[in-house]
């Protein structure tokens, strides 16, 4: 039978994939996508907890809605920045951002 732990493990795997992408991706947009994966794993956790164990179940889903809203805004700002830097440099590779030490 499928229980809480199954969902949590899926979340953990998603989190790990996101973290791996965050650490190893060169392209800024790819890095942003990896972060989205991590945030999704958080949401899976929250919704799973609110379904299976939470005393205040609604709070978990409210939390994940907030996270979705913020994540959407984050992508918008991140892409605007990516576009800005692309206009200046013709690249969005994180590795090539060497004005400052990474």
């Amino acid at each position: 039978m499928i229980g809480l732990s199954h969902y949590l493990l899926v979340g953990a795997a998603l989190f790990g994939l996101g973290l791996f992408g965050l650490l190893t991706k060169r392209n800024l947009i790819a890095v942003l996508m990896s972060i989205e994966l991590m945030l999704n794993s958080v949401n899976i956790n929250l919704v799973a907890f609110s379904r299976f164990s939470a005393t205040d179940a609604a709070a978990g889903q409210v939390f994940s809605l907030f996270i979705i809203a913020v994540a959407a805004a984050e992508v918008a700002v991140g892409l605007a920045l990516a576009y800005a830097i692309y206009r200046g440099r013709d690249t969005v590779s994180v590795d090539e951002m060497n004005w400052l030490k990474w």
Partner: peptide, 24 residues
């Protein structure tokens, strides 16, 4: 700005994951 955005978002994601466990 890009560095701050990427790192801050990643830090938020890690923190959120921790929060989700606390909620659990």
């Amino acid at each position: 700005a890009i560095k701050y955005l990427v790192l801050a978002s990643a830090a938020s994601a890690v923190m959120l994951y921790g929060m989700s466990l606390l909620f659990g």
